[in-house]
């Protein structure tokens, strides 16, 4: 755990708005929004970790397609809607909730609801949609931390969203490939437990880290 906490400052730096990105957006037009969106998705570990958790639970390509589509629909609604309307969330607070979604997925995949609460897991498709909405609000808050100007405002939001989807696809392809190949191996059980236990640890650590910063900034 100490090792993981030691890595946490890196998480924050990955979520920062960088001057380089801002300069790119200032001069690069709509393609730069696609690039920054994709970059954010690929470096924003929490989004990817949540998707890893979702994919672990699914076995067929059709299911993966359905769940990823629902997640995409959810985060696109809040990403485009909140940005267009200028609705922002407290950054550390929304990041903490996103981290909890990672913890949730690892916990569910390990049968936590059955073992701990003696009950069935909530409907996964509905939960993925709800968490998609929350992830979209986090992405929107991040996008709004850039100075976007008023010109082509909607087009910039949509371009960023397109970038997010492209980044998501780029990240998922190797992950799906790895999980699918490992599924037939004898060691898959240990891998499944290790990966989902990691999601719980990482989700909990990220959530604590974000809440500490939220409380510090609230003082």
């Amino acid at each position: 755990m100490g090792f993981l906490f030691g890595l946490l400052p890196l998480v924050l730096s990955a979520h920062d708005v960088s001057d380089g990105d801002q300069q790119l957006l200032d001069s690069g037009g709509l393609p730069s929004y696609i690039w920054v969106g994709a970059k954010h998705m690929l470096t924003g570990y929490d989004h990817i970790l949540f998707l890893v958790g979702v994919i672990f639970f699914l076995k067929s390509f059709r299911d993966i397609l359905v769940f990823i589509t629902v997640f995409t629909l959810g985060h696109s609604i809040t990403l485009i809607g909140a940005t267009y309307l200028g609705v922002t969330a407290k950054e550390h607070l929304i990041d903490a909730i996103i981290a909890i979604s990672v913890l949730y997925k690892g916990f569910e995949n390990l049968g936590g609801f059955e073992k701990v609460f003696k009950t069935a897991s909530p409907n996964l498709l509905a939960m993925v949609f709800c968490f998609g909405l929350i992830h979209g609000l986090g992405l929107s808050t991040r996008l709004q931390s850039f100075a976007m100007g008023q010109t082509d405002f909607l087009a910039k939001i949509i371009s960023f969203n397109v970038g997010v989807e492209l980044g998501q696809v780029a990240a998922l392809i190797p992950i799906i490939f790895l999980i699918d190949r490992w599924r037939t191996k004898r060691s898959y059980g240990a891998f499944y437990k290790a990966a989902n236990m990691y999601l719980i640890i990482a989700g909990a650590a990220l959530a604590i880290y974000q809440m500490v910063h939220y409380l510090q900034n609230s003082q």
């Binding site: 400052p9 890196l10 998480v11 730096s13 708005v17 960088s18 808050t141 931390s145 609230s218």
Partner: peptide, 28 residues
């Protein structure tokens, strides 16, 4: 930029993100 009560600096400090991924892989 500041949004609400929270601010985040325009600095790209800290270790690069691949460090986090490497650390995560080690943990897994």
């Amino acid at each position: 930029h500041e949004h609400g009560e929270e601010a985040h600096d325009h600095v790209e400090d800290g270790l690069p993100s691949y460090s986090y991924w490497i650390g995560s892989l080690v943990l897994v």
